[in-house]
């Protein structure tokens, strides 16, 4: 394969993997604490829309990103109230959160840009080139959020396996009774995991509108939240392997984009579906013996 083509492919892989990786890490945090957050698709959309709207009206990308993460954090807390405090069915309440948050985001977006005929755009974050890499330099011309996302992987691995906070998260996700007996506040840890996770999901969404595209549309997330859920299972709830899942999806998507550019005699929409199909196959192969966090989907109530 041509060298520039390969380098371009790898660069695109990292870029496409970024939002899914960020959201996937957020979901990992929530699920390791025992809560499935199906609000992810809606929270990513909230991140994309709120980030764009605030950045557009304030002129500051950073303010937009901050607002997006704050909104994601709040959505995470809402999920916590439903799943932790009330102990509702996590599938249905999570989908409810997706419906609610996407409805709210689109409502506000439509209201803000009511009179505008053309979709508004903004100048996105610049790409940063890492110095001194020689031939492979083109791969590392990325948005800073991409570097951040990949650096977050070892950091989260370390937090989960080596810190007290990580121990608490794993404890409430595996055996909340034991954690409670040991004096860990189960609800507080789950809320914290959901809030931080929500902020990361929204960050993933904001990457789309504030970096990759420089604009926001109704369909901007396009099922990426569901892909993130899939790679968390694929990655066995370990940040490193979740990253591999995100990279796999990113690579197939990047490949698909190149194939479209060459002009295969296949309708390009079928190529668009390819990464999702590969995700399902990967899940079928890797997810068979998935070791789910033992307390996932189970609300915790202290026995009196």
């Amino acid at each position: 394969m041509d060298q520039t083509l390969l380098l371009g492919l790898l660069a695109a892989t990292l870029r496409i993997a970024t939002p899914i990786l960020l959201a996937g890490l957020g979901e990992t945090l929530a699920e390791r604490a025992g809560v499935l957050n199906l609000g992810i698709e809606g929270i990513m959309l909230v991140g994309a829309i709120v980030g764009f709207s605030v950045a557009y009206s304030s002129g500051s990308l950073w303010l937009g990103l901050l607002a997006a993460m704050l909104a994601g954090l709040l959505a995470g807390l809402l999920m916590g109230w439903l799943a932790v405090t009330l102990g509702l069915n996590q599938h249905v309440s999570g989908l409810g959160v997706t419906l609610l948050t996407s409805g709210l985001a689109l409502f506000a977006f439509r209201l803000q840009f009511k009179g505008t005929a053309t979709p508004p755009t903004l100048e996105p974050f610049p790409q940063l080139r890492l110095p001194g890499l020689g031939v492979i330099a083109p791969i590392f011309e990325q948005y800073w959020l991409t570097y951040f996302a990949f650096l977050l992987v070892p950091l989260m691995g370390w937090v989960l396996s080596r810190t007290t906070f990580g121990l608490w998260i794993r404890a409430v996700g595996e055996n909340p009774q034991a954690a409670d007996t040991a004096g860990v506040n189960v609800a507080r840890v789950r809320y914290t995991a959901l809030a931080l996770g929500g902020a990361l999901m929204a960050m993933g969404g904001a990457f789309l509108s504030l970096a990759q595209l420089g604009m926001a549309t109704f369909g901007i997330v396009a099922g990426r939240g569901w892909v993130a859920i899939a790679i968390v299972i694929f990655g066995n709830w370990q940040p490193g392997k979740v990253m591999l899942g995100a990279a796999l999806f990113g690579f197939v998507e990047a490949l698909q984009l190149r194939l479209r550019a060459i002009g295969l005699p296949v309708p390009y929409q079928l190529l668009l579906a390819l990464p999702y199909l590969v995700t399902i196959v990967a899940l079928a192969l890797a997810g068979r013996n998935a070791a789910y966090p033992a307390a996932l989907l189970k609300p915790y109530k202290r026995e009196d």
Binding site: I229, A230, I280, A284
Partner: peptide, 20 residues
């Protein structure tokens, strides 16, 4: 294999399929 994830992903696949 968790059906929640696969059914959600297949929704997206179907949309592209119909489009194609």
């Amino acid at each position: 294999v968790d059906e929640v994830v696969t059914t959600l992903l297949l929704n997206t696949v179907m949309l592209y399929l119909i489009n194609g």
